[in-house]
Nucleic acid binder design. Structure first.
Length: 438
RNA sequence: GGCCCUAUCGUCUAAUGGUUAGGACAUCACCCUUUCACGGUGGUAAUCCGGGUUCGACUCCCGGUAGGGUCACCA
């Protein structure tokens, strides 16, 4: 059991992580689970100046929300607290003359007069990348790179190598931007005489203009997607399909299905553009799969504006929600519908210009017909049944359009039968009467 | 600029020497329909360019071109 697969997600809490970061987390997670292995989280906060607790908290929150459960949740290592461990290895390198204290002219006020540099053998390093195959890089143009600012201040390349070793990481799955870092880390491994893990470098996720995804280019924190009403299942599914494919035409995958189907060999080599519209589609698909009650519960936070207007009526809201679902991609769109006044007519009589009715001629007939419906059986179906033939006879547009406008006050809305059934018989007759008297 | 990586519809991708180059999103048309939305049907749309190898290249090789990454006392 000593060759158990262990992967890790090792972000730096120096800012809000975006889609590309979380996609590497998704792949690391899926690969570990697909191989019955472990997936662990490590916080790389050796840069004390830029690391912030707020960002680390956001990483935990995002991972949990996405459902990427890490196996060391009760004991997540922070590199800032592991200085003593790194010191041991650093001292060894120093003692063996594989690293040395470098005294140099300081270039700017931030620089220290002394740093610890790795004695580079300037050779060509070749490693096998699980995504790209063999990669060879000549390290001679790297020089004697800095691995610590001091004996108590180790830096990235050193800490990564030591931690991956100590935490028994078997597969380092990370972004393509680390390819050129890999030879440096391999050199350190050799100096320390520790084994190298397998490497898999994932292609990057790009903005629509093919440049790096950034805040300016619309990159959002994962929690922002949550707050806008995306479902974690949709994000997970979409992220997994960006740069990986199952080799079949299946598009919708549950977390379990992803684990079953995931294969590093089918990871794409080229960068992918983050496509918001496809994400919207995924989210709508998952929204459609929710039960009415689940949808209502998830929609509630986005209904606050209606609640404030004292129009909050749970029973009525539950009837309206299916109509809303057809018209949104994410729950946050509900707020926009409310702002555009596309839901308020369900709660209060609409105001509209008389011209919008186009034709008032049949309104009195409609009032009579609607009044004939059994009050105990006032549904969209019975309303339609009693009106349909009449409308067909007089021209549906002549009858149904004014009816719908009388009820909704809008040029675009759901059909008049469903609106009538939601606002009720008395209110329907009242609004039709108002329209007839305009 | 040096080094490294990559290259199929607008986008995400399938096809690992022989397919009418397939699917999804988006888009367009039609159907459904009083409008919007949903839904249904169908369509437009791609192998970066140039050389090889081969009976035969999206697929293999070379060269261009383009895009990306990286060249810190950040990670």
């Amino acid at each position: 059991m000593n060759n158990e697969v262990v992967t890790r997600f090792a972000p730096s809490p120096t800012g809000f992580l975006q889609a590309g970061n979380y996609r590497t987390a998704v792949f690391s997670y899926l690969f570990a689970r697909a191989n019955n292995g472990k997936f662990i989280l490590r916080i790389e906060d050796t840069d004390k100046g830029r690391s912030k607790k707020e960002y680390a908290d956001n990483i935990f929150e995002s991972l949990t929300w996405l459902g990427l459960d890490y196996d060391n949740a009760d004991n997540v290592p922070y590199q800032s607290k592991r200085t003593e461990i790194y010191k041991k290895y650093l001292q060894k390198l120093l003692d063996e003359n594989k690293a040395y204290v470098s005294k140099e002219e300081i270039r700017n006020e931030r620089d220290r007069p002394e740093v610890i540099r790795f004695r580079n053998s300037n050779k060509k390093v070749t490693f096998h990348d699980l995504v790209r195959g063999e990669i060879t890089i000549d390290t001679s143009d790297l020089g004697d790179f800095v691995i610590a600012k001091g004996i108590d201040e180790p830096m990235f390349h050193l800490t990564v190598v030591i931690d991956d070793y100590e935490m028994k990481i078997t597969h380092v799955i990370r972004g393509e931007d680390h390819i050129s870092n890999t030879p440096r880390q391999i050199l350190i491994q050799e100096a320390l005489d520790i084994p190298a893990p397998f490497y898999a470098h994932l292609p990057l996720i790009l903005a629509p203009d093919r440049t790096k995804l950034s805040k300016r280019k619309g990159a959002l924190a994962m929690t922002e997607y949550r707050d806008r009403g995306f479902l974690p299942e949709a994000l997970l599914n979409y992220l997994a399909m960006l740069g990986w494919n199952p080799g079949t035409n299946q598009e919708l995958f549950s977390g379990e299905e992803l684990i079953k189907a995931f294969d590093l060999a089918k990871v794409q080599k080229s960068a992918a553009i983050f496509n918001q519209e496809k994400l919207d589609w995924y989210n709508h698909e998952y929204l459609k799969r929710l039960s009415p009650d689940e949808f209502f519960e998830k929609a509630k936070p986005f209904l606050a504006d209606l609640e404030q207007l004292d129009r909050y009526d749970q029973d009525k809201m539950k009837k309206i929600l299916p109509l809303v679902l057809e018209r949104i991609n994410k729950l946050g769109d509900i707020q926009e519908m409310i702002e555009r006044q596309e839901l308020q007519y369900f709660f209060a009589p609409p105001l509209y210009p008389k011209e919008l009715l186009k034709n008032q001629g049949y309104l009195n007939d409609l009032i009579r017909l609607v009044g004939e419906i059994d009050a105990n059986n006032f549904t969209a179906e019975t309303v339609k049944a009693i009106i349909w033939d009449f409308a067909s006879e007089r021209g549906r547009g002549n009858v149904l359009w004014p009816m719908r406008v009388a009820l909704s006050g809008l040029a675009k809305s759901p059909d008049p039968f469903i609106i009538a059934s939601i606002i009720g018989q008395a209110e329907t007759i009242k609004r039709l009467t108002n329209a007839a008297n305009l």
